[in-house]
Write a protein that binds this DNA or RNA. Structure first.
Lengths: 226, 226
DNA sequence: TAACGATAGTGTATCGGTTACACTTTCGCA
DNA sequence: TGCGAAAGTGTAACCGATACACTATCGTTA
């Protein structure tokens, strides 16, 4: 593909990256995964996991790969969010970033530092540190998308572990919308949409009545309601 | 920015393009704007208007510019849709395409052939010719987005000319959802959402009672309902 | 071992927005 | 002046969403 190199002179190509906003719920809060940058620009600053697209790599794969390399996180729900391409968003060169957002249950996320990143850590969404590039905007766009999808999809079910109780599911929704939800109405809804089924087991968790345990009927698909 | 050229050898950059799906309603049908390609690949084939991103140009501006250059169409509602980056979507080199979709009233769209395109023409959405690249997929993604936004936004109002009657507005919705709509319910809804105001004029159009003429309260914004 | 604290689990009545539905008005034209 | 054709108008039924309070079952402790 020598033609590509020729074009660099006639028509310079921008760099293309993917950046991933990973959300999870842990410690009763919505949290976001960030990595600390090791090199310039924004050295030492927190940023989204992500990086340059390989020339023979799909966009989706690039997002999954960078996430895995930098944080050890794999196999989660990944959806393309939006593409950011302001001319001055990277001081080095022109960079087009295809942003993704990802959701996963807290338990599945085993962090480990990769080669590109000195460190990876979770931050509460409502207490983010200063971020590199335009990553603050990207995260807030992802959050808007997440919240708006709560209304008409089962996207929030991606935060659930393999098995769960209805109270745990309700708590996820309460954290996301930041408001209490009526227990009876919530259960009526959760059982009506046919996305969960009983495992038959009970879960004991303290000195009170044990809860029925459920699982998702289809872990790998989010459903659009109405 | 000589660094960019250096990178072409170490880390080859993909080309970045924008492609625009323009919808309008004319002749009682949803139609899409296509251009006929003058050079290879897909020479003579119909394709979406669009082209390569200038290195110092915003993505949005690129989409608007390519549209203007190739079709003479300007000043319409433009929204980023999705980014397509399959490895083999362009046989020449790796190309990442940031797709946009645009809506406009039929009257404002004066077509003229530009330099990149031999010809530009409208096609009914339900009778599209074979298309270059993955443009068929892009158009159908755009259509899905359009239809889903009908439910919760005033996006369809972008098809309206400066002034219009409620029957004309209703007709737009009927064409888009491809089903008849109850007149009284539609008018109740249209007047309740506070997006239109009477001009005070009447429009005579045939041998029957003249219709009240309306305009949008805010042409430049689409509103999200509920 | 009985009382208590804590979470699980359950049904009904009301409200509000959505839908279904038919006739009168006003024009142009024959 | 009567006829065809689109403009314009209100009410009742329906249905999904909401508000709301008590019993069940466990572990712990007095």
């Amino acid at each position: 593909m020598s033609r590509n190199v020729d074009h660099c002179y006639a028509y310079p190509h921008p760099a293309v990256t993917t950046d991933v906003v990973v959300f999870t719920i842990r410690d009763e809060r919505l949290q976001t995964l960030l990595i600390r940058r090791v090199g310039p620009p924004f050295e030492g600053c927190w940023a989204l996991p992500g990086g340059f697209l390989d020339i023979d790599e799909d966009l989706d794969r690039c997002a999954a790969r960078e996430l895995r390399e930098e944080t050890g996180v794999a196999d989660l729900y990944l959806e393309q969010l939006c593409t950011f391409g302001a001319v001055d968003r990277d001081p080095r060169e022109r960079v087009i970033s295809v942003a993704y957002f990802a959701l996963a249950p807290a338990a599945r996320l085993q962090l480990k530092a990769g080669d590109d990143a000195a460190d990876a850590a979770w931050f509460p969404f409502h207490a983010l540190p200063p971020l590199a590039f335009d990553h603050d905007r990207i995260i807030h766009t992802a959050h808007e998308r997440l919240v708006s999808k709560l209304d008409y999809s089962t996207i929030a079910f991606q935060f659930l572990p393999e098995t769960f109780t209805l109270s745990e599911l309700q708590r996820i929704y309460e954290i996301l919308v930041d408001a209490p939800i009526d227990k009876r109405n919530f259960r009526k809804w959760a059982l009506a949409i046919q996305q969960v089924e009983e495992t038959g087991e009970l879960r004991r968790h303290g000195s009170h009545r044990p809860a029925r345990v459920y699982r998702l009927t289809d872990r790998n698909r989010i459903t659009y309601l109405k």
